[in-house]
Simulated assay, not measured.
Amino acid sequence: MAENRAEILAGAAVLAAAIGFLVYATGGRGAATAGSYELHASFRSVEGITPGSDVRLAGVKVGSITKLTLNPQSFYADATIAIEKSIQLPDDSAILISSEGLLGGNFVEIQPGGSSENLAPGDSIEDTQGSVSLISLLMKFVSGGKSDAAAP
Rank of each mutant, 00 (worst) to 15 (best):
A25Q: 13
G35R: 01
S133D: 15
N118I: 13
V60P: 00
E3R: 06
S147P: 05
S115R: 13
V142Q: 12
I19T: 09
I49S: 00
S131R: 05
L119Q: 05
E84N: 07
D78Y: 06
Y24G: 08
H40K: 14
Q111A: 13
E3D: 10
G113Y: 06
A17D: 12
G20N: 15
S74E: 10
S133A: 14
L96E: 11
A12K: 15
E84C: 03
Q73T: 15
F21E: 13
H40F: 10
S124I: 05
E7M: 11
G63I: 00
K85N: 13
E84T: 01
G11D: 11
I19G: 05
L103F: 15
G104R: 08
L103T: 13
I8R: 09
A31S: 03
E126P: 04
G101D: 04
F75S: 15
G114K: 11
A149M: 04
P152D: 07
G144P: 10
L137T: 12
L102Y: 01
S42W: 03
G59I: 05
M1R: 09
S115Y: 07
S133G: 15
E126R: 13
P112C: 06
P112D: 04
G114D: 13
G27W: 06
D78V: 05
I83M: 01
A10Q: 09
L39D: 00
K61V: 14
A120R: 14
D127T: 10
Q129S: 15
G30V: 00
M139V: 14
K146N: 12
L9D: 09
E100H: 02
K67W: 04
G28Q: 00
Q129F: 14
G144E: 10
V62E: 07
G48Q: 03
L39I: 06
L103A: 13
T128K: 03
G113E: 10
G130T: 09
D127H: 10
G35H: 03
E38Y: 02
G11A: 12
G52N: 04
G35Q: 05
G63D: 02
A2F: 08
A79S: 05
Y37A: 02
L96R: 06
G28C: 00
Y37F: 07
G113A: 11
N106M: 15
S147V: 14
E100Q: 07
V23H: 04
L119M: 09
P112W: 04
T80C: 00
G130L: 04
L119V: 08
F141K: 12
L22D: 11
D127C: 03
P121R: 02
E100P: 00
G104F: 11
D148K: 08
S131Y: 02
E109V: 01
A120E: 10
A25W: 10
G59K: 07
F75C: 10
L138S: 12
H40Y: 12
A13V: 08
T26F: 12
T66E: 01
S143Y: 00
A94G: 14
S36D: 02
I135R: 05
G30K: 01
S131P: 03
D127I: 09
A31F: 00
R56D: 10
A82K: 01
I19F: 06
D148I: 08
V62D: 06
G101S: 05
E47L: 07
L57F: 13
A34L: 02
A41G: 08
D54Y: 02
S45L: 05
T50S: 04
E117L: 02
L103G: 09
E109A: 11
I95Q: 01
A13N: 12
L96N: 08
A16Q: 13
R29S: 01
